[in-house]
């Protein structure tokens, strides 16, 4: 009986000797906690996307050229996600040595992604696309920064799990931790892909508001 399915129950009629099923979800608390956290982060980026779409239509929007390095970064993030998934699988199969290698690779990829994002900022900055010159620029920096911060937080959890992987590779908590890191990496990959689509969309001509320079500037 899941929590929602139980909403039809009539507790005042249940005989007292009947101890019904708990109705807990078949997941560890940490898994449920992470799922809820991901829902909160989804709300956060969803609202930012809504704001982006609204702000874009106001006339002064001038799309900025996405630096090509973003594709490389996307690749790094995807590889990191795959590596953590691999690590989780290996650990469940009882191969902690190779799981550790894959796990470290996953973190390394995330580090590379962050370095690449900073490089992208530097490139834009060098081209004169400053934070405040146009809302398109501001959104670019804001969205990438917030996404990066979430990944940075993930790296803190990753470091802790990496330590567990060394000290107690067989523990159930370690297996859980690796699985959670992998899930979070996938999630941030999906968020990133969505953000990337949003950032690219404004100069691909998909959106109605793309009359360059229509505003006052």
């Amino acid at each position: 009986m899941n929590p929602l399915g139980s909403l039809g129950a009539k507790p005042w009629l249940q005989p007292a000797q009947d101890v019904p099923a708990w109705g807990r979800l078949p997941f560890a608390p940490a898994q449920v906690g992470l799922a809820i956290f991901m829902a909160v982060v989804t709300a956060l980026f969803g609202l930012l996307a809504a704001a982006y779409l609204m702000r874009m239509t106001l006339g002064d929007w001038r799309p900025l050229p996405e630096p090509p390095i973003l594709w490389l970064n996307t690749l790094a993030l995807a590889l990191g996600s795959a590596a953590l998934q691999r690590s989780s699988t290996l650990l469940r199969r009882g191969d902690p040595a190779r799981a550790s290698t894959a796990f470290v690779a996953g973190g390394g990829c995330a580090g590379a992604f962050l370095a690449g994002q900073i490089a992208a900022w530097a490139q834009l900055d060098a081209l004169g696309y400053f934070v405040a010159t146009n809302p398109a620029n501001t959104f670019f920096y804001l969205l990438t920064a917030l996404h990066g911060l979430h990944l940075l937080g993930g790296l803190a959890a990753w470091a802790r799990t990496a330590w567990h992987l060394r000290s107690a590779p067989g523990a159930r908590a370690t297996r859980l931790g690796v699985g959670l890191c992998a899930a979070y990496w996938h999630f941030l990959l999906v968020v990133w892909l969505a953000l990337l689509a949003l950032l690219m969309a404004d100069d691909a001509g998909w959106m109605p508001a793309m009359h360059h320079g229509a505003g006052t500037g």
Binding site: M1, P3, S6, K10, V19, W22, G23, R24, V32
Partner: peptide, 11 residues
């Protein structure tokens, strides 16, 4: 969701 004791259903 996850720490209710035995018998403590949502309802």
């Amino acid at each position: 969701l996850q720490a209710r004791t035995r018998g403590m259903t949502m309802m």
